[in-house]
Nucleic acid binder design. Structure first.
Lengths: 336, 336
DNA sequence: CTGTTAGCGCGTTCAT
DNA sequence: ATGAACGCGCTAACAG
């Protein structure tokens, strides 16, 4: 492997000083056009490119943003990630991405590594395990030296700039939508009861149902997707129980499963049963039937997260901003 | 924002030299246990962590791997990316990810930035535009100083270690599968005719059809997904033309669309029509019906790419390895 | 216009 | 056992 050429070597070849080369490369006005040309030509010839590490060390700035994501398979997170990258690039920043697999240990490590001069700020979606274990010290420690923006998942201990989604509202809106379209018995299905978002969503659902006499509700939660499918199917095909005329999917997986069961059992959409849930927008747009869904606007989440971080980078502010993105119910083929 | 503490400041506080602190932190045997303890305690107290940038500059090694991906929305690429990260981590490397949006310019920039000391090697899936424009110089230039592994997309000009998938074989296997299950007229649908993989897949399909008298075939290609959907639907519902009894989807989108049209028109799977295509495995496993698909083993692609790169990092080798992952047809509900 | 020097944070000889 | 000094590659303040 050929060694990368440095400014020093170019200087030696041209018999000038390193600073002359450096200035020439950076188009400093103190250098003559002649010298600039000479230097640049040689630099090009040898394929010189400034060593990013050295520049970062010198300037004490990397123009990198760290991103920590629990799981790339989660299509919402993937979409947010993409938009973070796009928006960061627009502002002249690169992103360095780590995945945690929802693990606390990985999250700690990622934060540590990133904060040691690699990046200027970190955008992070906290891992589930972090909430389960109620461990937030690592965030606080890192935040003392590196600006942090969290997204999607909130906790009162996480006192940072953040962008999240009005999760409660989504569920409430969906319930209200069912109510308005004369549903009687809503089945809430979830594969993320173990996740704190999952718990919140369920709680919101049950409390709504309890407060509304015109609507009754049931809940099926199961982490194992195959078990979840079985339970939902059993429930939907059990004619001895009150009829379920609407399903609310609490996450993408359970929504896909519910939709699959409806298709498999040839239940008549809208007439017999309605479905609202979370989806992969792109996929949903192509399939048939398209599921009515809760739009969480991942584009906005990503963009806002970058926005907040960059603002924080430029001006050292004290007051924190906790942004909430409003969601919307998008009616497609599975509901009125 | 609190400033990060450095070795120098610790040294001053303890009234020792920086080298003593450095050695103590790195457990050098030349430092007394007493001093080590003293240093480490203070370091911990102040939350000292070595500056990664400085260490990299000093050691001339970053333990970073650069990854360049055209599009994260592509679920195959997303899955490969995930596995690259997991496998890299296993080997003590981090990944720095850039997205190109299939653009040549972005690819060039990404390669430039990454190769300037940020990473020790780069894993890249070349962008479509790169193939269209037939520009490969930037790869060659970078490769002179930084080990490169390409994946998924091949070109004779890309003489690097690579991992790809036996794309021709996949299409051939699917055709053969149709043939064995007595299909007569296969419709090849694609939204990626503009992509070189797309062209190869189509060519493979047509040449197979032409060589086999027992099978006839047709092709619908359309970049605009809505147009594609319309054309396919028109064709399938047009009884004046010979019946299509099998569909081969050349990419995820067209496969979803084909599947949607089948569902919408209530065509009887297997009896009336079969479908094999590319899918998002996770999604497919949950939906109904599950589409018979071509498994490209993204896990293997990711793992092998890292493997190749790390081998290249350790030993400066000359002979290049072009690995081909064997694909497999996975029969689910949409084909015999 | 060009060069000298110092220093970013760290690790590593080589002295002491 | 501890410290001084150098250098990784680069930029910038200061001289000339």
């Amino acid at each position: 492997m050929k060694k990368k050429i440095t400014i020093k070597e170019i200087a030696k070849i041209l018999m000038v000083s390193v600073s002359t080369v450096s200035k020439a490369m950076n188009d400093s006005p103190e250098i003559s056009e002649k010298t600039k040309k000479k230097v640049k030509e040689l630099a090009k010839f040898y394929g010189y490119v400034p060593n990013h590490i050295a520049v970062s060390l010198k300037n004490q700035s990397t123009f990198n943003i760290g991103v920590i994501i629990p799981d790339i398979q989660n299509s919402f997170l993937a979409e947010v990630l993409k938009n973070i990258e796009v928006h960061a690039k627009k502002n002249g920043y690169r992103i360095i991405t780590f995945f945690t697999g929802e693990k606390l240990k990985e999250e700690r490590e990622s934060l540590n590594i990133l904060s040691n001069g690699m990046v200027e700020g970190i955008i992070v979606c906290p891992s589930e395990e972090t909430f389960v274990e109620r461990q937030f010290e690592h965030f606080k420690n890192i935040a003392e030296t590196t600006p942090i923006v969290t997204f999607d998942r909130l906790h009162k201990e996480l006192n940072f700039n953040s962008v999240s989604v009005d999760d409660d509202q989504s569920i409430l809106k969906a319930c209200a939508h069912f109510q308005e379209t004369d549903a009687k018995n809503v089945l809430f299905v979830s594969s993320i009861g173990w996740l704190s978002v999952g718990k919140t969503r369920r709680r919101t659902f049950t409390s709504f149902i309890e407060s509304e006499s015109s609507l009754s509700g049931e809940t099926i939660e199961e982490h194992e997707l195959e078990d979840l499918r079985q339970k939902i199917e059993e429930r939907l095909t059990d004619s001895s129980q009150p009829k379920v005329d609407a399903i609310l999917g609490a996450d993408i997986e359970s929504t896909i499963i519910a939709n699959a069961i409806i298709a498999k059992n040839k239940l008549k959409l809208i007439d017999e049963i309605s479905l609202i849930g979370y989806v992969n927008k792109k996929h949903n747009e192509l399939q048939h039937p398209r599921v009515s869904y809760i739009n969480q606007f991942p584009e906005k989440v990503g963009e806002q997260a970058v926005e907040l971080l960059i603002k924080n980078l430029k001006e050292d502010q004290k007051k924190i901003t906790q942004e909430i993105i409003k969601t919307a119910i998008v009616v497609k083929d599975t509901s009125k």
